[in-house]
Every structure is written in C-alpha cells, then in structure tokens.
Design a protein around this nucleic acid. Sequence first.
DNA 1: CGAAAGCGTCGAAACGTTTCGACACGCGCC
DNA 2: GGCGCGTGTCGAAACGTTTCGACGCTTTCG
Lengths: 340, 340
Amino acid sequence: MPTSIKDIAKLLNVSVSTVSYAINGGPRTVSPEVKERVLDAARELGYRPNRLAKSMVTGRSRTIGVVPPEIVEDVLLSPYLQLALNGIFNAAGSSHHDLILFTRLAGSGHEEVLSTILDGRVDGAIFIAPNSTNRAVLLAKELRIPCISLAGSEIDGVHTLSVANETGMKLAMKHLFDLGHRKIAHIAGRLDMQDAIDRLRTYSEFMSENRLSYHDSWVVKGQFHPDGGFAAMKSLLALPNPPTAVVCANDDMAIGALRACQEMGVNVPSEMSICGFDQTSASELTIPPLTTVFQPIAEMGRYAVQSVLDLIDGKPVPRHVTFEPTLVVRSSTTVPMKES
Amino acid sequence: MPTSIKDIAKLLNVSVSTVSYAINGGPRTVSPEVKERVLDAARELGYRPNRLAKSMVTGRSRTIGVVPPEIVEDVLLSPYLQLALNGIFNAAGSSHHDLILFTRLAGSGHEEVLSTILDGRVDGAIFIAPNSTNRAVLLAKELRIPCISLAGSEIDGVHTLSVANETGMKLAMKHLFDLGHRKIAHIAGRLDMQDAIDRLRTYSEFMSENRLSYHDSWVVKGQFHPDGGFAAMKSLLALPNPPTAVVCANDDMAIGALRACQEMGVNVPSEMSICGFDQTSASELTIPPLTTVFQPIAEMGRYAVQSVLDLIDGKPVPRHVTFEPTLVVRSSTTVPMKES
DNA sequence: CGAAAGCGTCGAAACGTTTCGACACGCGCC
DNA sequence: GGCGCGTGTCGAAACGTTTCGACGCTTTCG
C-alpha cells in the first residue's frame, strides 16, 4: 500500500526509469520540467523509496552488522560492550550507516548467525571480542564478507583490532611493583577470550622476570563478572599468606573484589591495592576510585567502522592494528603496609 | 556470486518453486526423494537464503527498529538507554528477531529517520523515550507502522508504555518525609521529556499537599546528566537556607550531586540525604549506595517487543500500559540532622 | 468405471528498485 | 545534406525469493 515509483510513473504518464532518474539525479539526465513534476508528485503521494528493493539491485544496504561476543541474556549490560557499541554507533551515524544488532547467536550456534549475516542485509560486520572458538568469524572471512574483529583473538586472515594487552598489564604491574608491592595476585577473566589469556600471560611473565615467586593460588579466575571478582578476592583473602595487591583483568571484577574487601573489613588501598582494567564509567564511582588501565575502546569502535567501510569499498586496510592502553592512577592503589 | 535458489534448481533440473518448497517445507509438498536431493545440494553449495528477497515478497523482515530518544554523540552511554536496550535485546533474541539501531536522527531531522524506518527494513519500531516534539513517532503512527513508545510522552493514538512517575516520586518523597525531612529539594531532568515533567509536577504536588513551603530555588534543572546534577547540588548548597534532602530525577544526576557533596565536605546521608531514580547499576557502587526508585525498564523493553510483535500480527494491544516503580532504600538517605 | 480429490511439479507473476540498450529528436559540422 | 553526437525518454532485464494457477498423474470412492 505504500506508494512506489510505479504509482508516480502511472500518475504522470512517464516510465519508471524516468522517475528513478529524476529522484536520484540518476545516471541519466531528465528534463527540468519532468523532474519537477516527478518530485512534486513524490511529495504529494508521500513516496518513500523501499530500501529492500534498492539494496537487492545495488547489492548495498548501508547497514553494518554488529555481533556481540556471544549472545546471552543481558550481554548488553557489559560495560565493555557498551563502550564499544557506543563508539561504533557514533561512527556509523556520521557515515550514514545503520546498525543491525544480532541477537541470536546462542540458539542454533554459529551457523545461524552466519546466515543472518550473509543474508544480504548488511554490507559488512563487526565482531566484538569473538573468542577463539567463534566459527562465525572464520566462516564470514571464508565467504569474503568484509568483517573486522574488534579486540578478539588474532585469526588468520581476519582483520583484527586489538589492544596491546602486554603494555596495559605491564603498566599495571610496574605501577604496583614501583610502589613496593611484591606479593601481587591476578584475577583473570574468561580464559576462552584472548584478552584474558594475554593478560594472564603477561602477569606470569612479569612475575618471573622480576623474580617474584608466586603461588598458583594467586591466579584466580573471575569470569569477567563482578561476582566472580568478589569470590576471587574472598579466596585470596582466605590464603595463609595473602597478596598485598591484585590486578584484575577488568573493572567489573575489580569492583567485585573491592566489595569483598569492604565486606571483610580490609581497607583499600592501605591493606590491599586493587587495579582494574578498561576504565569503565563505573570505575570512577567507587570509593576509592579505581586505578585502572584505559583502553581506547570507543575509538577502536570508530576505527572498526571506518575499516569495514574501507573493506567494503575495496580499499586496503591494515591486517592488524594495535592500540596502546595507558594507566589511569586513582586511589585504589598505594604503597603496601609494612610486613607485620 | 553467492549461490541462489536458481543455482540449485539448475543443477538438479527442477524448478525454482520446487526448491523453495523443499527448503521451506513450503506450502506445497515435495517428494521425499527430491527433497533430499535439494537439501543435499543446498548444503553442498553453501546456499544461504537472501533475506532481502524474502522480505520483499513476504513483506516481513523479522527485524525491529529501535530509535533512541535523540541521536547524539554518546547516546548509548546513557544507563537508562542501556537498560532499555538490553531488555529489548533479550526479548528480540528469544523471539528470533534482529534489531536495527537507528543512528541518524540528528542530521536531517525526523524526516530522514522516518524514511529509514519506513523503507521496508523493519516490521515495527520501538521509540525509546521520545520527547513531545518528536515528530517521527507521529508520522510513524500516521503511516500505520506498528510502533511503541517506551517511556515517552503520551501521544494520541500511539501505543505507550510508561512508568507511573507519580508513584515513584511520591514513594521517594514520602520516604524522606517520613524520615523527618521537611526541606526537600528536587533536581529535575530535561523538561522536554515527559518523565522529567511528571516527576517535577509530582514533587510540587507533594510539597503543596503536605504544606511544605518551598522556594523556586529548590528546583534546579540538571539535564539528566551527572555534571548537571553536580552543578545543581552546588547551587543548592550555596543557598542561605539549604535543603536537608534532595530527590533527583535520575541516578546520573544523583551521582553528580553526591560528588558535589563530597567535594564540599557535606556528609551524605547525615548532612544531606540524596535519592535517585532508575536504579541503574552504578547506583549501588557509590559510597554510600544510593536510595533510588526502581523502574522495571528491562521488563518494559521486553514488553515493548512483545507488543510490537502483537501489533504486527494484528493482535489487540492495550493502548497504554503503566508500570509501577518501587523504592529501593539504601544508605544515601537518613533522618535529618537536628536544626542547629 | 468415471468423477472427484490429492499429490508433485512446473511456469510465471509479483515485490520495488536500478540501469542498460534502444530509439527518436534536434543540433552542429564537414 | 548526410553524419555523428548529445539529450531525454522508454521498455525490459535483473536482483532472489514466494506462491498461485495449471496440469498431469495416481488414488479413492460412489
């Protein structure tokens, strides 16, 4: 029932092609008089071009797909994802693209997501932090869909934007080390995600390089969740020889850890220094505000959009781009208490 | 270059309709033997149905449009929007719909957003907190696009989901009143948004009903932003006869207000009680955790999706649904200090 | 045994665009 | 005056589906 180009053509007794030319300033010229009549009629009838039809014939949808790390309940509540999505959103808006948010990876596995990606509705896709078992990225690549992996594992032949986790982790560790800490623990993220793996590895390396002995019990998995951080900190505090500082693989866990300390009556930072990762907005609301590693996630989102667009246009795009994090020192870290 | 239904048909020497029937279990039956051959070939060729083509002929895209309140830089960083979007996301996922996030209201105004909505890519739309000047909703309604206004102004003939702001505001006010507060201020939101208007009105009503005199200077606009809340609280603290309690129209402003108090050395809650609105996740991370009004935003998002779906299916949907908020009492409110 | 009903298949139309090939016309140029 | 060219227009193909009408074949039933 909405008006189509045909309706205009019929009304004005011209061909559909003429109408199309008039409306688009199309590849062919149209006499000024006809053009005006067409435009008037279009306005009159409330004509709206049907993007589906247009996309089908042009092969372009001006829409970019965004695939969350894995699609589970409440995934949009992750501050990390929110930051990335916001960056992508901003960039997409200014380049006149819309975003399609894929909602159903979970159900029937990667196959299904893929078909929704490859079904013509998007020109390219951004995968946010796909873990190494994410087959969708691989398949997308194989099928030559322009796609970018944002902060995910480096996958052969897939364009990847990553954060120098080594730098970030070293920054945090060195900060604590320079403050005088020697007993430093790590609350790790989900070890099926590349970021978590990198951060853990760098932690271990730093400890070895500086000849700091550490127990396996000082590395606790927190699944990137506040509750995980909470439980992890509890278990650290229960150790006979607890650490004096903890580096968490993200802010959410650091917040959980902070809460655990508060609950156990352990003062932060004087009795326990806590360092986060991500610089989410929540990290400055805690008391004390968290020392954390800033990652330019929003900027990476912006960059990801630009890269996908370039990929679509066939422009060359660097295979891997690494962004450098910086340390934001706030009040959750300080010199350790003297050994009692 | 991707394989189409035609390729399969040609390969197997059957008609395209037969292939379609086989793949969809379509309206017509297909002999088991042919069906199997078709399915095998489809798998072999890596066939993926093209949703665009399908949508064009069926008129359904299984995609729902989401329109943020207004499209500005960083709109996705609003906790309120995040909560709503998350609820919508969850519901869309479980009903096998994808989401299109509209990114470009700003540029060329409501006209443009509308054409991107009406261009056939979405079956229906959810407008998040459209303000009263948002013409897009009206136009959408006029053009009979199934759409839901989530927490926006009540617009004639538009299906609206709203929160009983009166209840929420009264809950907060009564809580403070019962604690003994008489000098209660209000940090209001953006007064072009319905929620802000309602909350302000209820504040005034409550004050009058309880014969509490209040100055105009006790109502300060905070634009729903933390910085606005910060500035607002500063101006309240600078008053000759400052209030003992403040109800903020959202959590972000309450957090700003809290920070202002901390900076001015005003203890919360003993010297100043602060009450928020929204129960965002940040509201429990502050010290002290905020007393706030819980709105079932996520649930409303879910409900919005269901309603749009029903609208699309032509099922009856109630014109207005009101959700009831509840008060979450935490530690940012207490009895007022004795008058010095 | 013949009509009716059901099954399996095909061909074609339809969805709303864009764009290519054709063509008719008028103009300037040699 | 014929030739070529640019301009404005038309018709039709194409994009990849779904689904309807048609048709021939088998089965069922009176």
